[in-house]
Every structure is written in structure tokens, then in C-alpha cells.
Nucleic acid binder design. Structure first.
Length: 707
DNA sequence: AACGAGAGAGTTTTT
DNA sequence: CTCTCTCGTT
């Protein structure tokens, strides 16, 4: 059956899908059927006779690319597996490998993940003896962040320091040297970080005309999704890949740019028509996802942006529940309120149609505790990665050495499991191995016989080049005793992780590809779609491009959202606003915003009062249904009759002020005056009374004193 | 040099 | 809670 484009698409979508040759820019508002449009365009191209293997689809995650190709294939009634799809980084890697002989990279190079890069920054710092005994010298992670930012934005380290890290200006020169040393170490050990992948591909394409030609011959249609999140080098790559044909289609939404922190450049999307003269621009503004009340809210968020965006989304889903704004007493009671909301939503929606979103990974912790108590299955996106677990890194270390014997980080990991070998000795041994100093190596092995086993294992892997699965089996066999000794408490759990790793390895035929994919793509993400009916917990960044029937957004308080670190610079604050926009536009039918009025601060060991996020405060009156948790733990509409605590227990002046429970002094009818030490949600306080000592008292019986 | 205990600090976001 | 660094001991 032929595809009825005009029936399935609205006029704007249709225009984009039917556009054949020449540059095309699609400005796609949130929920405007962007994926649908790309899918139909893919189908249309193939239907018109374009070979699938002439199509390159660059997206933000591999999963997104696969999904689009699958859907297009489904429309056409044929597989589109010939088309290339993936992230910029995975594509760059594949081309660097393919043209390795011209890329000037050795056969075996290793891709560094963040932990590897951090380790190398540390080594560079030690080598240069920077910041010795100076506590103010930026921490390892800060150094890495800075170096990477400079690279991504294509600025000098000094420039980044002056622009964004003003307090580090005294260290600018040192940091600059550090960046240079880091780069030198990478080169010396055949390692590429994420940024290198892109720059190396660009260098290859510019330096080798025949490679560029062959690449251009191969991919005659290039499509790029999430174009607002590309950085400078990615934009140049798109230009190189488009070649003279300029059959290039970029899709994006400037309002959803949330990766400026890693160098994404919104200007790319604005400059696209300049880069590609004759660009056709199509705007998708009809929203098919959310109800009007939700859209009103998200439009309001965007209206507060410093640069005003002209587009305003509209929908035909006029009816729907108003978004809710729930103020809870504390973060712990917020977690319980989330459980109650979930119970309510589950009458209408399946668990997998609901998501809890937050700004940073750790913020979901109290919610996770409650979910575990109730036995509700959930899945967390963004957070600790599978491949970052220590035991996984250990095992991968052996495989990495089989591919790249100069991989210092891998040597260290592997060698430091030998008894009596620490950082220094490991380095020395690795050095003898890397330089082929057989005599030196022998000395070490005589001293520590286990070393010989390790070397034999690695050597065996290098010589036999077994498939990843078999290689992994060999390593795990060797490593299991080490695992049991190192993690006596929880090694069974970790062993399971290794089994998962084996399952991931199974489809791969060579080690290089397996290792590269593990560092470039987050493996947890692929299987996530497969799991049935589990609740999703996700950072907002990881929720990009996804949608749910109901979305719960937690921790909307000052210093958390927007993040405290964004408060200093207006640009950063604007990005936080767009993040808030992205979060709220994930919701189809129901949206609930949670504002805890106090949060437990670990190192102070008590609850601190919190102010609502400015993004909440500026929401127009009446855009949300407001609820507040009383001391009894019950939610009641604001303005309505609240289950009353003692009247004087409501601190602060009446009216619009947010009465956060203050941790000051109070009086009790019997015990007299005392200092409030801790708020024990939902309704109790730990009070140190002047004459009676520590007591735990229900809030109702306390008279709060204003500060 | 290595290692264990212990304190301390500190938590953005990701390819 | 969890990693990271420090310090004292072997």
C-alpha cells in the first residue's frame, strides 16, 4: 500500500518530508511531530529511488537513529538496515577506523571515557608538579572540565578561564600547561578522547581529498537531528559531509538547546541558511503532544526568556487537567507525595507512561528509597553508568590491553590488583611492558609470579584475537578470584554485571568495535525500551526527545533548579530555563511540579529551609492548581481550609510568603523554650529544651518563634 | 612504597 | 552515600 503523505502529515510536515534535494532546515517545536517528519522523509527518499546505504542519519543517541530507521522501514515494508545512523562520535569512530591508514592513527587506539580522561589529567598534573600543597588549585575534575570546554568551544584555556572561571585566573597559565601535557600524554599512549574523535575526522577529511571524495560518494543524503546541540566542529563536519551536493537536512529547536555547557552552539542553527545558500526553512509549530493547559505553562516559561522566541506552540487538545504545583514540607515528604501521586495516576496510566524528572542524578535518591519500599519497579536514566563500575572497568582493562598495549590507564587497573603493587610500581611495570624492555619485565615477574599470569593472559588475547565474547570469558575466568577477594561483600551482584557485559559483547565480532561502542554509547540505554511497565526516573538531559503521559518534576527549589552554579552567568541561567522548558514539554496529559520547602543537608545533619525555584515563582497566577502539604502530611488546595497546625506554628507574615518550617527557637507548654535541631517529617521536630534536653515533639504542640 | 583506616568533602547536565 | 584524599604504620 502506498504511503499517503498528505493524509498522515500536516502541511508543514508534508513540505519537509517531500523536500528532495538541496539544503533543508526544519525548526521543530517540542512535540511537533519532528520524529514523524524525519521518518516520512526517510521513507520518501527511499521510495523515490535513493539507496538506503546512501543515507546518513546523525542523531543524539544511537537508539533514536535506530528507532527512526525502523519506523521508516515499517512504513515502506522493507528493512533500512543499510542506512547509516548513529551519533557524531560513533560515526567519527567508524570512519577513522575505516580509513585508519590515512588517519595517521595507529591500528590500535583506545577511546577514553570520562574516568580515563580524569585519570590522565591527574597524571599530567603530577608530572608537572602543579598545585602541590596548594589546596586552592582546581580539583582534578574541574581541570578536566575546563580542558574539555576549551576544546569544545575552540577557545584557549585562558579565554575559558576569564570567561567562566574567574576565580581561577591566577592559575590560568598553569592550567594551560596542564592542557598541553594532557594532550601530549594522550598522543603518547594512543588514546583519543571524545573531542578528538570529531577533530580527527575533520582533519582526515580536510587532509585527504580522496577520503572526502569517497565519503561524499557514499553518503548522498545527510540528515542531522537535534542540530541546536551541535558544536562548532560538528557543524563543520556537517558541511564537509554534505559536500557539493548539499543534500543536507538539519532538524532542531533553538528553544531546546541544553548542551551549551559542553560547547553546543545555538548559532549553528541560526547560521545554517548562511552556510548552505538556498536553504529551505520549514517551521513546525503545531504541537501534538500536550494539552492546552500544559502548553500554556510551557509557553509562559519560554516567555520569560531573555531572548524572546517568536514561535508559540498551539494544540488542538484544548481540554485537559491543569498542571499541579505541590509544596511539601521536606524532600522526604516530597518523595511520599510522589508515591501518592503515582498511586492516583496509576488508576489511569500504566507505570511506563509516567516519569519522574529532576535536574541532577542524586536528586532522585529519596524517591528511589520510597519506590523500593513499595516494590515498584523503576529504571533510572542518567546517573552512574554501567561501564563506570569498578569491576567492569577492571575486566575491560585486559581487553583494552589486547587492542592497545600502550594504554597506560588499562595497565594501571590491571596491575594494581597484584598484591604489593601500587600506583608507582604499576607505572614502572607498565613502562617496561610498553617499551618492550624484556629484561626489566622479567625482574618484575620473578618478584611477583602472578604478574606472569596477567602477561600471559594479555599476550594470549593479543595473539589469538578471540571474539569479544570469548575474550571476555577468558578474562572473567582469571578475574573472578580477584573479584571475590576485592569485594567480599557484594561480589555476586558484580558478577551479574559481568554476565550482562558478556551479553553485550555477544553480537560483536572484534574487540575494537566492542570497546569503542562501550565508551561512546551508554549500553544501559538500549535495553531500557525493552523493559515492560517500569517507572522511569531520569535527569532532564537524558529525557530529551522522550515523552510520557504523566510527568512529575521534583526538587524545584532555588540552588538546585536552576543549579547554583548557573546563577552567576546570565547565559547559564537561560540554559536552565530552556531545561525547565524541556522538562515540562515532555508531558502529554498530566504535569505535576513539586516544591519541597526544606531539604535535608547531609553534612549539616539537618533540614534547611528552601526557597522555591524562580521558575516556579514567575509562573502566571492560575496556570497551576496549587496544593500544600500540611503538618499532618495531607495535601490541601492553597487558600482552602488547611488541616490546621497551631495557628502560631505558621511562621512568617501572611500572604504570598512561603512559610518554610524554620529551624529556630520554639516554646512548649510544659518544657518551655528550646532550640529546634531537626525537622522530622512529616510533622515532628527534634528540640533541645533549655531545661529538659532533647525531645521529639509533634509540631502542633510547639509555638514557633520568628527569627 | 604500599596499604589500611579514617576523616572529609561534596555532589550538574553527557558524547 | 560514596568516592577521594590524607595520614600513620608496616
Amino acid at each position: 500500500m502506498p504511503i499517503d503523505y498528505a493524509e498522515d502529515l500536516n502541511p508543514a510536515q508534508l513540505a519537509a518530508a517531500l523536500h528532495a534535494e538541496g539544503p533543508l532546515l526544519v525548526i521543530a517545536g517540542a512535540g511537533s511531530g519532528k520524529t514523524r517528519t524525519i521518518v516520512y522523509r526517510l521513507a520518501r527518499l527511499v521510495e523515490q529511488g535513493t539507496r538506503p546505504d546512501h543515507i546518513l542519519l546523525l542523531t543524539f543517541t544511537r537508539k533514536a537513529a535506530q528507532e527512526m530507521l525502523t519506523r521508516a522501514g515499517y512504513l515502506l515494508g522493507m528493512g533500512l538496515s543499510q542506512a547509516a545512523g548513529g551519533t557524531f562520535h560513533s560515526f567519527a569512530y567508524s570512519q577513522l577506523r575505516r580509513y585508519a591508514e590515512f588517519a595517521g592513527l595507529g591500528k590500535g587506539f583506545t577511546i577514553m571515557d570520562r574516568a580515563d580522561a580524569a585519570q590522565m589529567v591527574k597524571e599530567a598534573r603530577e608530572k608537572l608538579a602543579l598545585g602541590k600543597g596548594d589546596k586552592a588549585f582546581p580539583k582534578r575534575d574541574t581541570c578536566l572540565e575546563l580542558v574539555s570546554k576549551a576544546r569544545n568551544k575552540e577557545l584557549s584555556v585562558e579565554q575559558v578561564v576569564t570567561n567562566e572561571y574567574f576565580h581561577l585566573v591566577p592559575y590560568a597559565e598553569d592550567l594551560s600547561r596542564l592542557a598541553a601535557e594532557y594532550a601530549a600524554l594522550k598522543r603518547a599512549h594512543g588514546m583519543l578522547d571524545y573531542d578528538d574523535l570529531l577533530f580527527e575526522l575533520e582533519r582526515l577529511l580536510l587532509a585527504e581529498a580522496h577520503v572526502r571524495k569517497s565519503v561524499n560518494e557514499r553518503w548522498r543524503f545527510v540528515m542531522v537531528d537535534e542540530y541546536q546541540d551541535t558544536n562548532l566542529v560538528q557543524a563543520r563536519l556537517v558541511k564537509l559531509l554534505a559536500g557539493e551536493r548539499m543534500n543536507v537536512c538539519a532538524v532542531g529547536d533553538d528553544a531546546q538547546s541544553i548542551y551549551a555547557f559542553r560547547g553546543a552552539n545555538v548559532a549553528n542553527i541560526l547560521d545554517f541558511p548562511k552556510t548552505f545558500p538556498g536553504t529551505r526553512i520549514v517551521s513546525l509549530e503545531q504541537n501534538y503532544r500536550s494539552t492546552q493547559p500544559i502548553l500554556d505553562l510551557t509557553n509562559a516559561i519560554l516567555a520569560g526568556a531573555r531572548e524572546k522566541y517568536e514561535k508559540r506552540l498551539f494544540t488542538e487538545r484544548a481540554n485537559g487537567a491543569k498542571p499541579e504545583l505541590v509544596r511539601t514540607l521536606s524532600d522526604a515528604s516530597q518523595a511520599r507525595a510522589v508515591m501518592e501521586k503515582l498511586a492516583e495516576l496509576r488508576r489511569e496510566y500504566a507505570l511506563h507512561e509516567i516519569a519522574v524528572l529532576f535536574r541532577a542524578g542524586y536528586q532522585s535518591y529519596p524517591v528511589e528509597l520510597e519506590l523500593n519500599k513499595l516494590g515498584l519497579p523503576f529504571q533510572k536514566y542518567g546517573g552512574i553508568r554501567f561501564t563506570e563500575a569498578a569491576h567492569v572497568k577492571d575486566v575491560l582493562g585486559y581487553l583494552r590491553l589486547a587492542v592497545n598495549p600502550a594504554d597506560l590507564a588499562a595497565w594501571r587497573r590491571v596491575l594494581e590488583h597484584v598484591k604489593g603493587v601500587g600506583a608507582k610500581t604499576a607505572l614502572a611495570i607498565a613502562q617496561t611492558a610498553i617499551t618492550g624492555d624484556a629484561a626489566g619485565l622479567k625482574k618484575h615477574t620473578l618478584k611477583r609470579p602472578v604478574l606472569a599470569d596477567i602477561l600471559r593472559l594479555v599476550e594470549g588475547l593479543r595473539n589469538d584475537r578471540p571474539e569479544p565474547r570469548a575474550a571476555l570469558a577468558r578474562v572473567v575466568e582469571f578475574y573472578t578470584p580477584v573479584l571475590m577477594e576485592t569485594y567480599p561483600d557484594d561480589y555476586p551482584r558484580r558478577q551479574q554485571g559481568l554476565d550482562e557485559l558478556a551479553a553485550l559483547a555477544a553480537p560483536y565480532r572484534d574487540l575494537e568495535g566492542f570497546l569503542a561502542d562501550l565508551s561512546i554509547e551508554n549500553p544501559g540505554e538500549d535495553e531500557s525500551g525493552a523493559r515492560e511497565d517500569t517507572l522511569v526516573l531520569s535527569t532532564i538531559h537524558s529525557a530529551k526527545g522522550l515523552e510520557w503521559k504523566a510527568v512529575l518534576l521534583i526538587d524545584l527549589v532555588e540552588d538546585r533548579f536552576p543549579s547554583r552554579r548557573a546563577m552567576g552567568r546570565p547565559e547559564d541561567l537561560e540554559e536552565e530555563r530552556r531545561l525547565m522548558y524541556v522538562a515540562c514539554t515532555r508531558a502529554r496529559d498530566r504535569l505535576t511540579l513539586f516544591v519541597p520547602e526544606s531539604i535535608y543537608v547531609r553534612h549539616l545533619e539537618r533540614h534547611e529551609p528552601m526557597r522555591p525555584s524562580p521558575f516556579v515563582l514567575e509562573l502566571p497566577h492560575g496556570s497551576c492548581l496549587e496544593l500544600r502539604e500540611g503538618f499532618g502530611g495531607r495535601l490541601s488546595p492553597v487558600g482552602g481550609p488547611a488541616r490546621s497546625p497551631a495557628p502560631s506554628a505558621v511562621p512568617g507574615p501572611g500572604g504570598s510568603g512561603a512559610p518554610a518550617p524554620k529551624l529556630g527557637f520554639c516554646t512548649h507548654k510544659i518544657y518551655g523554650r528550646g532550640k529546634i535541631i531537626e525537622h522530622i517529617p512529616p510533622d515532628k521536630y527534634r528540640v533541645n529544651f533549655q531545661h529538659f534536653g532533647l525531645k521529639v515533639i509533634v509540631g502542633q504542640y510547639l509555638q514557633m518563634e520568628d527569627a
